[in-house]
Amino acid sequence: MAHVKRFQNIPMSKSMRGLCKEEDYAFLGMSKKTAEDATEGCSALEDDLPDKKEERIRRRLDWEKQEKDRLRAIEESKKEKEQQWRTHIAELTSNQEKALQDRLARLQRFREFQRKVLGEEEGMEGEAADQLLTRM
C-alpha cells in the first residue's frame, strides 16, 4: 500500500489505483540520469522515424501497384470473357441462319417436287397446280 501513498497526487480513479501496482508507476520515480538516457534513446528512435516512414511509403506504393495490377488483370479477364461470349453468340447466330437457309432451300425443292407430281398426275399446268397447292 506504500505505492498508494507515494503516488496519491496522480489523478486516477480509486478502482484503477487498486488494480495498479508500484511497478506500474516506477517510471514516475526515475532519476534525471535515467531521464537523460531515455531522451537519448528517443532521439535515436527519432532518427529511425524517417527510415520507417520511407519504408511505410514504399510498402504502400507496392501495395497500390499490386492492387492496380490485380484490377487490370480482372478487367482484362472480363474483356476476354466478353469477347469469347460475343464470338460464341456470333457462331450460334451464323449456325441458325445457315440452318434456316438450308431448311428454306429444302422446302422450296419439296414444293417444286409437289407441283411437278401434281401436274403430272392431273395433267395441270403451273397456275392450276399452284392454286391446288395453296388450298392444301
Rank of each mutant, 00 (worst) to 15 (best):
A2D: 10
H3R: 05
H3D: 09
K5C: 05
Q8T: 02
N9K: 14
N9D: 11
I10M: 04
M12H: 02
R17F: 01
R17A: 01
E23Q: 12
A26W: 04
A26P: 01
K32N: 08
E36I: 12
D37K: 12
A38F: 12
T39G: 03
C42L: 14
L45A: 03
D47P: 00
D47V: 00
L49W: 00
P50T: 01
K53N: 06
E55P: 00
I57Q: 10
R60D: 08
E64V: 01
E64K: 10
K65A: 13
E75S: 05
E76C: 04
K78F: 13
E80V: 05
K81P: 00
Q83D: 14
R86F: 13
T93R: 15
S94D: 13
K98S: 09
L100R: 11
A105N: 03
R106Q: 03
R109F: 00
R109N: 01
F110K: 05
Q114S: 05
R115S: 11
K116E: 14
K116M: 12
V117Y: 04
G119M: 09
G119Q: 10
E121V: 09
E121W: 06
G126N: 15
E127M: 13
A129Q: 07
Q131H: 10
L132P: 00
R135F: 14
M136Q: 13
